[in-house]
Simulated scan of single mutants.
Amino acid sequence: MSSLRSAHINISESEIRRLRQQLEIEITWLQRQMEELGGAQSELDLSLQQTYKEMIYSRRALLGRMPR
């Protein structure tokens, strides 16, 4: 199955490094945004905090599937 997936991906190592770095930057930014919300109490803030968590999770999952 993984050989099938890799057959569809033709990205250079430098491009992969750039994409990994971009994802790491985004994760850091999202974590800071969550920290600024702190002990959010309003419904909007709680919703935004959950959105940040989901965005961080999806970016980490993508990082985990990318070649190193």
Rank of each mutant, 00 (worst) to 15 (best):
R5E: 11
R5A: 14
S6K: 14
A7V: 09
H8P: 06
H8N: 07
H8E: 08
I9E: 07
I9S: 06
I9M: 01
I9K: 02
N10D: 13
N10Y: 06
I11N: 09
I11G: 02
I11Q: 00
S12K: 06
S12L: 09
S12A: 12
E13G: 15
S14Y: 07
S14D: 11
S14F: 05
E15L: 13
I16A: 03
I16F: 07
R17A: 15
R17K: 14
R17N: 13
R18G: 14
R18L: 13
L19D: 10
L19W: 07
R20T: 03
R20N: 05
Q21R: 15
Q21Y: 12
Q22C: 08
L23Y: 00
L23I: 01
E24G: 03
I25Y: 08
I25C: 08
I25N: 01
I25D: 04
E26I: 00
E26Q: 08
I27R: 01
I27E: 02
T28P: 02
T28I: 10
T28W: 13
W29M: 12
W29R: 08
W29C: 10
L30R: 00
Q31C: 00
Q31Y: 05
Q31M: 08
R32V: 13
R32H: 04
R32P: 03
Q33K: 12
M34G: 06
E35C: 04
E35H: 06
E35S: 07
E36W: 15
E36T: 04
G38D: 09
G38L: 07
G38R: 06
G38N: 07
G39S: 15
A40M: 10
Q41I: 15
Q41W: 10
S42L: 05
S42Y: 05
E43F: 02
E43Q: 01
E43T: 12
E43K: 07
L46V: 03
S47L: 14
L48S: 09
Q50C: 13
T51M: 15
T51F: 10
Y52L: 10
K53M: 11
E54L: 09
E54K: 09
E54D: 12
M55H: 02
M55P: 02
I56K: 03
I56L: 01
I56G: 01
I56H: 01
I56F: 03
Y57H: 11
Y57P: 04
S58L: 07
S58Y: 04
R59A: 12
R59P: 02
R59W: 03
R59E: 08
R60M: 11
A61H: 13
A61G: 09
L62S: 06
L62E: 11
L62P: 00
L62T: 04
L63S: 02
L63D: 04
L63W: 01
